[in-house]
């Protein structure tokens, strides 16, 4: 099964048709949840990255901030995933060939992998290489912003 066939099947599913026929209010609500989710991911991640870089909320340790950020990032991901599905599946075959959508879904797993694979480790006080920690934190923030920019570009490239 090719990805286009998969997206076509998803778009033809009962739930996708139901989402597609939902009143405009639900589409607007989905966009607002998507934006809220992006902010819930980006702002706490920025605060942790800034703290690793030695600035921002310096009264907390990077590890403390990272722990506090988890609930916000997880909530943001929940918002982003469910609102994203709501927006995606009624028009899945329009999204599939869109290069910005493809880029977003290349960058997203990398951002998630670095976030959940490295952030807690580099935020620990005993992490030896401070410069490497700062570089990883910066790269992770840039990756999340790139995911956001790719997501925003979807609408422009589809137009």
């Amino acid at each position: 099964m090719t990805s286009l066939e998969l997206f076509r099947a998803v778009q033809g599913s009962d739930i996708a048709v139901a989402f597609g026929n939902a009143p405009l209010f639900f589409g607007i609500a989905a966009q607002l949840f998507h934006i809220s989710g992006i902010i819930l991911i980006l702002t706490p991640t920025l605060l942790v990255a800034m703290r690793i870089a030695g600035t921002g909320l310096v009264d907390y340790s990077p590890a403390q901030l990272e722990r506090k950020s988890r609930i916000y990032v997880a909530t943001g991901l929940f918002f982003v995933v469910f609102s994203g599905i709501f927006m995606l599946i009624p028009s899945a075959t329009l999204y599939q060939p869109n290069p910005a959508f493809q880029l977003k879904f290349l960058l997203l797993p990398v951002a998630l992998g670095i976030h959940y694979g490295f952030l807690a480790k580099i935020a620990k006080a005993e992490y030896a290489d401070k410069w490497l920690a700062k570089l990883i934190a910066l790269f992770m923030v840039l990756l999340w912003f790139a995911v956001g920019m790719a997501g925003r570009a979807i609408g422009f490239l589809a137009a």
């Binding site: 934006i35 992006i38 902010i39 980006l42 702002t43 920025l46 912003f145 956001g148 920019m149 925003r152 570009a153």
Partner: peptide, 15 residues
């Protein structure tokens, strides 16, 4: 895109 994503600094931090 920058208008939207800069909300992470402006809106996110003010919240």
């Amino acid at each position: 895109g920058v208008h939207l994503l800069s909300l992470a600094f402006s809106f996110g931090l003010i919240v």
